[in-house]
Design a protein around this nucleic acid. Sequence first.
DNA 1: ACCTTTCCGAGTATTTTGGTCGGGTTCGGA
DNA 2: TCCGAACCCGACCAAAATACTCGGAAAGGT
Lengths: 142, 142
Amino acid sequence: MKVSSRGEYALRALLVLARNRGEEMMPLSGISEQILVPAPYLEQILLRLKQHGYVKSKRGSNGGYTLRVRPKDVVIGEVVRQLEGPLAPMGCVSLTAYEACPLEEGCLLKPLWALVRDTVAHVLDRTTLEDLLTGKLPENRC
Amino acid sequence: MKVSSRGEYALRALLVLARNRGEEMMPLSGISEQILVPAPYLEQILLRLKQHGYVKSKRGSNGGYTLRVRPKDVVIGEVVRQLEGPLAPMGCVSLTAYEACPLEEGCLLKPLWALVRDTVAHVLDRTTLEDLLTGKLPENRC
DNA sequence: ACCTTTCCGAGTATTTTGGTCGGGTTCGGA
DNA sequence: TCCGAACCCGACCAAAATACTCGGAAAGGT
């Protein structure tokens, strides 16, 4: 049930960029220092964040990365899905990457896994980058 | 965020044994057939279930496995923790296997991971083997 | 005795994870 | 125009976890 380092690092990077919003672009090295992630690895991750439209970049000196969208529009659940794969604990209940299972019909576990998937998604899909910055989690908002 | 096969198989086995309750002992081969898990692998898992007190066994002919405790007393969250490790998505918010992190203080992600841990635990620790058998999940009970 | 069945430690192939590396491209400035 | 800063991007790699298999030893029943 762990979340891997890729997802964690991606969110850390997005948080740094969100705080830096409005300023000039931030180079890889700058982000890397702040979040304690090896620069070459972080580069891979930023590339994917860029491909998914969260981030834009500029090359050359004074180049770097910056947020492309408003923190309010970055849904944490989506970021995690795109960097880690489905939130569902088992393939048989995944909406985004369903995998069949021979025991599936009549399986007494399936409803449980579906419930777990829903509760996790309920949290992560209702949290945005802005919420993280301001410390407003779903619980507090209800 | 996946649950591994060990946990899944353990729960499948417990469900089979729970349905068989009161009857004679069920041999490895019988369980293995019903839940479609390779017998030697399942054996490992049953051994761990036994060590944790969920199951008892008898050797020799007419031997096999049987549930040691009432299905009502088997908490799914505990089974998962014992076979898969902590429910927390990150070491820094794990109650059962805490791991320090250099960014920890002031980390904006920590509260989110703690919330995820709590919501997952809220579901799995409120569900018992009996609930699975009767299809009564936490959602339905509230 | 002998067969059945669990016990249990060791080995192993595959996949995932968490990176590194090297060369290319693009930009800005001297 | 040349140089260095910075991103782009595919390939590679080592360690760990996963999902098993195997080979005996021990115990129970007949």
